[in-house]
């Protein structure tokens, strides 16, 4: 008789793969949240995906790796996401202005620089970008779910993920009803509906513990700041209940 096998090393490896392959944790952060940042550039500067990726890559190399920009982020000065976004906008405008000075017109954005307007310094502008915040919140949930699923799989707790997926995740798209508790009992071999409910509660707690870990990784801030960020992420999602994904 054996219990579910726990492969802790795989959990650790899943968490550390990025940092092992890249030069530092900040680069990992940018990789993880690449999609919302790229969508923001496409939207704001009206450029194509390839151009946005080039700009984002140069931002990573120049601002993050060389100047350690994120070390300047101060939780008391405003939201981390706003700071990061302003820094990115600054970088892009500086790139365009340098190109224009060199008369390299083909690389300019479709939208004029005047139209984009002046961009505040990372410390100054705390105005939210709703679509970016929504994309970011969505990506945080995605990363959280990916890690939770991996953890469940390698720790032998597939039931926990199965119940969470069947009861809560099936409903995310609004057109597939959640599994009933009786269906969960049959699918996962529980002895009663109460057992399935208890496992669902365990899964919810696991999701929220994992979410706090993920947010702590990018904020690198004390628990009350992490909690405030999570409250903001939830607010963004609730406020935009009717919106779908961003379109550039």
């Amino acid at each position: 008789m054996t219990l579910p096998t726990t492969r802790w090393s795989e959990i650790d490896a899943a968490d550390q793969t990025d940092s092992a392959m890249r030069r530092d944790a900040l680069d990992t952060l940018l990789s993880r949240y690449w999609l919302p940042l790229r969508a923001h550039l496409e939207r704001k500067f009206q450029i194509d995906t390839s151009h946005a990726e080039d700009l984002l890559q140069s931002f990573c190399l120049e601002k993050i790796l060389q100047k350690k920009l994120l070390g300047l982020a101060d939780p008391d000065r405003g939201r981390f996401r706003t700071f990061l976004l302003n820094a990115l906008d600054h970088h892009v405008l500086n790139q365009y202005r340098a190109d224009r000075a060199l008369k390299r017109r083909p690389s300019e954005p479709l939208v004029s620089l005047d139209e984009v307007g002046d961009v505040s310094s990372p410390e100054e502008n705390t105005q939210p970008d709703t679509q970016f915040d929504l994309d970011w919140a969505r990506q945080v949930i995605q990363v959280t779910l990916d890690r939770m699923r991996t953890t469940c799989e390698v720790s032998g707790a597939r039931q926990v993920w199965g119940v969470f997926e069947g009861r809560l995740l099936r409903n995310l798209y609004g057109h597939t009803p959640p599994l009933s508790y009786d269906e969960l009992v049959e699918a996962h071999g529980f002895t009663s509906a109460e057992q399935a409910m208890n496992t669902l509660n365990t899964a919810k707690r696991m999701f929220n513990r994992t979410l706090r870990s993920i947010v702590t990784e990018y904020l690198n801030a004390p628990p009350h700041t992490v909690e405030e960020e999570i409250r903001q992420l939830k607010d963004v999602l609730l406020r935009n209940g009717g919106l779908t994904h961003s379109s550039a």
Binding site: I141, L169, L172, Y173, K204, L211, K234, L237, G241, T244
Partner: peptide, 17 residues
């Protein structure tokens, strides 16, 4: 799982403060 088309309000329900 791809959350791009997921309803944000449903995602919010996953989060407990």
């Amino acid at each position: 799982m791809d959350l791009i088309q997921a309803n944000p309000a449903h995602l919010a329900e996953l989060i407990e403060l």
